[in-house]
Design a protein around this nucleic acid. Sequence first.
DNA 1: CGGTAGGGATTGTTGAACAATTCCACAAGA
DNA 2: TCTTGTGGAATTGTTCAACAATCCCTACCG
Lengths: 243, 243
Amino acid sequence: MIVVIEDSGATGLEADRGLVTRKSTAERVAGVLRNRIAEGFFLPGGRLSEQDIGNALGVSRNTLREAFRLLTHERLLAHELNRGVFVRIPSVEDVVDIYRVRKIIECAAVRGVRAKPASFARIKEKVEIGDEAARTGNWKDLGTANVWFHQELAALSGSERVNELVGRLTAELRLVFHIMAEPRRFHERYLPRNHEILDRIEAGDGPGAEQLLMKYLEDAEEQLVGAYADRAEAARAAVAAAE
Amino acid sequence: MIVVIEDSGATGLEADRGLVTRKSTAERVAGVLRNRIAEGFFLPGGRLSEQDIGNALGVSRNTLREAFRLLTHERLLAHELNRGVFVRIPSVEDVVDIYRVRKIIECAAVRGVRAKPASFARIKEKVEIGDEAARTGNWKDLGTANVWFHQELAALSGSERVNELVGRLTAELRLVFHIMAEPRRFHERYLPRNHEILDRIEAGDGPGAEQLLMKYLEDAEEQLVGAYADRAEAARAAVAAAE
DNA sequence: CGGTAGGGATTGTTGAACAATTCCACAAGA
DNA sequence: TCTTGTGGAATTGTTCAACAATCCCTACCG
């Protein structure tokens, strides 16, 4: 007798696909570097030496260069011919453009919600994580919780491509925050507004939530752009001096 | 006396930066392959052998693999570990998702137009190119003109990232059209609606244009999805038989 | 007929090698 | 003093050859 394991979906096996799907070393190296950049180990403007990192990670230059390619496409690294790869320094124009896209994407996603008390649990969860982080004074977690909150908002659109896009945008935003150098107060300020937006969503009031979110994004952008110009120049100078 | 060439921006020198910035061979190779895929030389589902293409183009395997990475990130190629790279076969879910994003992006861009008779010339130009192509029976040009038209619509948002995103989406759509195998009638059908949308835009009626565009995209998606299911399976079978 | 064990082909990854380019310091000249 | 060459060292760009890992196909065997 032959027993066929059916792909019924009820088994939840698909969730483990990520464990089965082996990744190439280049992708794993890219993952390591991505984390390092996100956590600020590699600072914006810094150069990533092929030799040093290749030796440190124990991979060949060719493989490492493949990893660099991946991250360059995610706008985390900037590749300059014959000069090497650098952690990107987002310009003010980048910040403005990032928020332009966020307004389009996130607002559209939120606008579409209807009074279905279905799966807003994930959003609520992220809001609560943010609250908890603020309560315990864990500013680092607060920042990431906020990012997750917005990713969940975008996920309301139910589009794989939108999720990927937002993921890249937020990764890029992390670079901006590293330049800002004081993200503590920045994120904390928007905590209560997360609740307001969540309330509207749970009430099925899409347009209302959109209105709040739009104002939210406009304020954040304005604050960011304002605090940015000085810092960016300072960071550039610091890097130039260090190198 | 010392004369300093200032970076005043009025010189327009930055515009020529693209001419100075040389491209790596990997990028040039990627460009060649991208064109080949777009024009249907490499059909969806086909495998791209490292050895063959490397020899044909006179580049090493390492360089070629870098090019493959680039195109994989653009969703034109699919990379399967230890099996090689294949021209992607977009699934029906991909088509639906692509149109989901297009609705969000293009509609948002169009919605924002105001009664500024400023720079709609570029859009009008693309519409006329489409008309001309239809008149002379040049179906291939008609398709690309239509793509350009929508790219111009998206460009109304004024966002570099949006432009890049739609560029990738339309490249992916070209793969879908190659599976469809009869794009002639498909594009022709929507020509008059281009004019309607353009009229609303020129009148500064953003919401009106958005409404038309939304219906346009919904119809196109429906037609595409309908004609797709059969074709996709047939193409898959054909490829399996040929290999 | 189904399972399995080879063997050939292709990809994954490495290391070395050389060319091309950039960077830096230092000297020469106005 | 400032600019302008000019070396050499360091780094990247690219190729090549080699080997391991994996996949695919076929032939064999129960």
